[in-house]
């Protein structure tokens, strides 16, 4: 098993960037982005709790960033998921649909780098999951402002939405960490995560 990136002494070799992505990495990112769209559709059930479909895609984001441990992967994943959502007709934010996915990817990337430890840690994964789900809500609200949706309408239920987004994000993050722990037991995926 690898040690935490933050405690590694050979920093340059431990932090490869996305320009060193292999074809396998790219395929994995594209596959996860597509799975996110599928997960969002599958979990769109009428329970009237905002953000509930995030449980699965937040977990997938965490898993992807944990397996493809290269700087920029989160942003690339967000961008690909956003483009998929935009051009495959998912979501309802019109021309800004991609922004919420990209925002989630950026938050995932920044927090994965800034916070110590790796995404198999439940604390880090929970915080990253909550923050990236909240990032998506922030992008959604911003898109509403740009689309001139009445401010009163955007603010209605915002507190409730933020709370449920955080809770489902935490749940997704923890699920992602759990899945990562299991997946990293697979030699091929562990080697993948270590850039092998």
């Amino acid at each position: 098993m690898t040690s935490s990136p933050s405690v590694s002494s050979s920093a340059p070799s431990r932090h490869p960037y996305i320009w060193s992505l292999s074809l396998r990495d790219l395929l994995l990112i594209a596959l996860v982005a597509a799975l996110c769209m599928l997960a969002k559709q599958l979990l769109r059930v009428p329970i009237n709790v905002p953000g509930h479909s995030g449980v699965l895609w937040v977990a997938l984001f965490v898993i992807c960033r944990g397996i493809v441990d290269k700087r920029g992967t989160g942003v690339l994943l967000g961008l690909i998921a956003g483009l998929l959502a935009q051009f495959a007709g998912f979501g309802h934010q019109g021309p800004f649909e991609w922004t919420k996915w990209l925002a989630a990817g950026i938050v995932l990337e920044v927090l994965t780098i800034v916070l110590p430890g790796d995404l198999r840690g439940f604390g880090k994964a929970a915080v990253v999951g909550a923050a990236l789900h909240l990032g998506k809500l922030a992008a959604l609200t911003l898109a509403g402002l740009i689309l001139r949706v009445p401010v009163a309408l955007l603010l209605l239920g915002l507190g409730w939405s933020a709370t449920t987004h955080v809770l489902f994000g935490v749940l997704g993050g923890v699920l992602g960490a759990l899945a990562l722990r299991e997946l990293r037991k697979v030699p091929f995926l562990d080697a993948q995560a270590r850039g092998g």
């Binding site: 927090l111 880090k124 915080v127 209605l156 915002l158 507190g159 409730w160």
Partner: peptide
């Protein structure tokens, strides 16, 4: 840092509730 990030998330949620109350 994880605790600080968690606290920042809590602040954002509280701010969202405040905005909702204002609305």
């Amino acid at each position: 840092p994880v605790l600080i990030a968690a606290a920042a998330i809590a602040v954002v949620v509280v701010a969202a509730w405040a905005l909702q109350a204002m609305a």
